[in-house]
């Protein structure tokens, strides 16, 4: 048996050499815990993220929009499942993770605690929320834990349509009637700042960033990703003649980046703590889904057990 010190040395060397860590490899306890927390939180976000958009499927303005939104929301369910199964390779169970979500112990991305009140919000969510998620997920394709990285590669392949369908909705509204353009602008106004908050607190105040960077779980910091998102998104807004709701937004030649205004972190923490417009509604929706589906899950297990019993009885007779 190797001692813990030599195992740690081997682990550190793998991280240094960019060799992925796999489920059965030895890993520091904190690395495992950090991953379980992060991956399950990510999975919960995909699942809860289906709620604000899901209510618009039956109200989409055309068949084309409807099939696209339906496919997108279905993809998010798939993303949740890829991620739950990646987390399960670390020794947690689906039941534990779901329980942690339902009791409020586990978090999900705060962005989904905002409501989608008009059709333009579906455009803004695809463009901005999926856009911000993509920035983060592209970075995570290079994360040090193998199953997480592989889930991310799969997810990233599917995400680009999500952002494109959202941007197309915004583009169409922005080119439409006065009212339609105003609706698009209003959605941008409401979703812009929460989207910037999606990257998490500033580096200086982020308690997990340093260790996660050292373990190569994260490959870029919150502030780096946020800046990357602003730089990519501002020209997209200009192109469809919408205005980013930030009077301090200005191109900085020296930094080759946009400077942008102060984020209202008080609002962010308030929503994280459960006081956003939809926290209660989202959690209740998930709790009810679990409760109302329980008899179906139990019946399926009972049916499977009966089938396998019948099969083995038959085999005995034959």
């Amino acid at each position: 048996m190797s001692s813990e010190a030599s195992m740690l040395e081997k682990f550190d060397e793998k991280i240094r050499k960019e060799i992925k860590i796999e489920p059965r490899d030895w890993m520091p306890d904190k690395y495992r815990k950090t991953l379980i927390r992060q991956i399950s939180q990510h999975a919960h976000s995909e699942i809860v993220g289906m709620l604000p958009e899901g209510v618009w499927i039956t109200r989409a303005p055309s068949m084309r929009r409807k099939v696209a939104l339906l496919a997108k929301v279905q993809d998010e369910a798939g993303h949740g499942l890829y991620l739950y199964s990646a987390a399960e390779t670390l020794g947690t169970t689906r039941g534990e993770m779901i329980d942690d979500l339902h009791t409020g112990k586990a978090k999900y991305s705060s962005i989904f605690n905002y409501p989608a009140i008009t059709w333009a919000d579906i455009g803004a969510i695809g463009w901005l929320v999926d856009g911000a998620a993509i920035m983060n997920q592209v970075m995570l394709c290079r994360t040090s834990y193998g199953p997480y990285a592989r889930a991310m590669v799969r997810i990233c392949k599917e995400e680009s349509f999500h952002q494109r369908q959202g941007y197309e909705i915004m583009l169409t509204l922005a080119k439409g009637s006065e009212e339609q353009k105003a609706m698009a602008q209003d959605a941008l106004n409401r979703w812009w700042w929460p989207s910037l908050m999606m990257f998490g607190p500033p580096d200086a105040e982020s308690k997990h960033t340093a260790q996660s960077m050292a373990w190569k779980i994260k490959r870029k910091t919150n502030d780096e990703l946020r800046q990357q998102f602003v730089n990519a998104t501002v020209p997209q807004a200009k192109l469809i003649d919408l205005t980013i709701p930030d009077p301090d937004l200005v191109w900085n030649e020296e930094r080759n980046s946009y400077d942008f205004g102060e984020i209202d972190w008080e609002e962010f923490w308030n929503v994280v703590k459960g006081n956003g417009p939809c926290n209660k509604e989202r959690l209740e929706a998930r709790q009810n889904a679990a409760k109302n589906g329980e008899w179906v899950r139990d019946a399926a297990i009972a049916f499977a057990e009966k089938q396998s019993q019948r099969k083995s009885n038959k085999e005995q007779v034959a």
Binding site: G78, L81, Y82, S85, A86, E88, T89, R94, P147, R150, A151, R154, R297, A300, I301, F303, A304, Q307, S308
Partner: peptide, 19 residues
């Protein structure tokens, strides 16, 4: 490609198709 939960093998194949 990954894993998933299902009550039995037939459901596992159907879920795998969807996921």
């Amino acid at each position: 490609v990954g894993s998933l939960h299902a009550a039995d093998e037939d459901m596992a194949i159907e879920n795998a198709r969807d996921v």
